[in-house]
Amino acid sequence: MADTVIKLRLNQQQLELMDRTIAQGVAPDRASLVRLALREYAAARKADATAEAAR
Rank of each mutant, 00 (worst) to 15 (best):
M1D: 12
M1N: 12
M1S: 15
A2N: 14
A2W: 04
D3P: 11
D3V: 12
T4K: 10
V5F: 09
V5G: 12
I6G: 07
I6L: 13
I6N: 03
K7F: 07
K7Y: 07
L8K: 05
L8F: 07
L8P: 02
R9E: 14
R9Q: 13
R9G: 11
R9S: 15
L10Q: 00
L10C: 09
N11M: 02
N11G: 12
N11F: 04
Q13V: 09
Q13F: 03
Q14R: 07
Q14I: 01
Q14M: 10
L15Y: 04
L15F: 07
L15D: 12
L15K: 08
E16W: 00
L17M: 14
L17I: 14
L17A: 15
M18D: 05
M18C: 15
D19V: 00
D19Q: 11
D19G: 00
D19R: 06
R20V: 01
R20F: 01
T21N: 02
T21M: 04
I22C: 03
I22N: 03
I22L: 01
I22K: 02
A23Q: 09
A23G: 06
A23E: 13
A23S: 12
A23H: 02
Q24D: 14
Q24A: 15
Q24N: 14
Q24R: 15
V26Q: 08
V26K: 09
V26R: 13
V26D: 09
V26P: 03
A27Q: 01
A27W: 00
P28W: 00
P28T: 03
D29Q: 04
D29I: 02
D29Y: 00
R30C: 00
A31N: 12
A31Y: 00
L33F: 04
L33I: 02
V34C: 05
R35C: 07
R35V: 06
R35G: 08
L36I: 02
L36Y: 02
L36H: 02
A37H: 01
L38S: 07
L38Y: 07
L38E: 04
R39S: 04
R39H: 06
R39L: 06
R39A: 03
R39K: 09
E40N: 09
E40M: 08
A42V: 13
A42C: 11
A42L: 11
A42D: 12
A42G: 12
A43C: 04
A43L: 11
A43V: 04
A43D: 13
A44C: 06
A44F: 05
A44G: 09
A44D: 11
R45M: 11
R45D: 10
R45N: 10
R45K: 10
R45C: 10
K46D: 15
A47I: 05
A47Q: 12
A47N: 10
D48W: 04
A49F: 06
A49K: 08
A49Y: 05
T50C: 05
A51G: 13
A51L: 12
E52L: 13
E52Q: 14
E52W: 05
E52I: 09
A53P: 05
A53W: 04
A53S: 12
A53T: 08
A53V: 05
A54M: 13
A54H: 10
A54D: 14
A54R: 15
A54N: 14
R55T: 14
R55I: 13
